[in-house]
Amino acid sequence: MAKRIDVESLNVYYSDFLAVQDASIKIAPLTVTAFIGPSGCGKSTFLRTLNRMHEVIPGGRVDGKVMLDGEDLYGPGVDPVNVRRTVGMVFQKANPFPTMSIYDNVIAGYKIAGTRKGRNELDDIVERSLRGANLWEEVKHRLNRPGAGLSGGQQQRLCIARAIAVEPQVLLMDEPCSALDPISTLAIEDLISELKTRYTIVIVTHNMQQAARVSDRTAFFNLAGVGQPGRLVEYDETTKIFSNPSEKATEDYISGRFG
């Protein structure tokens, strides 16, 4: 089941530096939410706090609450490993594991974690995930070839297949199309609309048309200046953000009059 995310006044730090200040957001299940904003405004940083990937960076820490269906991800005793199994992530740069075949990349979540599964079950997972990522037809005859041999767009879809193979409930995407050509981008955007029926999706993007095309709601992040913390300026229906935003800063940004 897809889950809802409620963030309550979250502060995100890199050591002593406050990167995102006082962000609160409510993300409904089975929706696509886009984070937009200028570089350095903390949208990727904020995204990484939603599956506790932020703390992987030395000095990374947060205070505040991130509730997944009412359960605090940063509560006492919560295991970040379990959080990340529930909230999957796709990165900006396609990062298939170079030592593994396409097949092994898809089941990497089980294989590396040491979960034992039968061959037939794994075959099913691979086919289902690759179909889910719209990659099955292109690679079904060469599942044992290295994943690093695919094109950039195929590698990114392989990473999406890998992320959905472990059946997360939420999928975070950090600028998944920024390194891809328009055709691969379109393939991934179509995929996002399909995945929306099963997962709650949060996507960071620099491409405002993309945010307008794929998302139901959009959050605009901004920062007052260099060295200042990023803030969540406005969060609303995507149609409202792009047609009639409440904040002046949002309007300036989406109409290109930023700065």
Binding site: N51, M53, V56, V81, N82, V83, R84, R85, T86, G88, M89, F91, K93, N95, F97, P98, T99, A108, G109, K111, I112, A113, G114, C159, R162, A163, V166
Partner: peptide, 28 residues
């Protein structure tokens, strides 16, 4: 690359298994 460690953590893999299954084979 850090990317590979990140990818593994994001799949819900504990750190020690990431080292054994991803970092060491890549650097082998």
């Amino acid at each position: 690359p850090r990317d590979l460690r990140d990818a593994s953590y994001a799949l819900g893999v504990p750190k020690w298994r990431t080292i054994i299954m991803i970092v060491l084979p890549t650097a082998m």
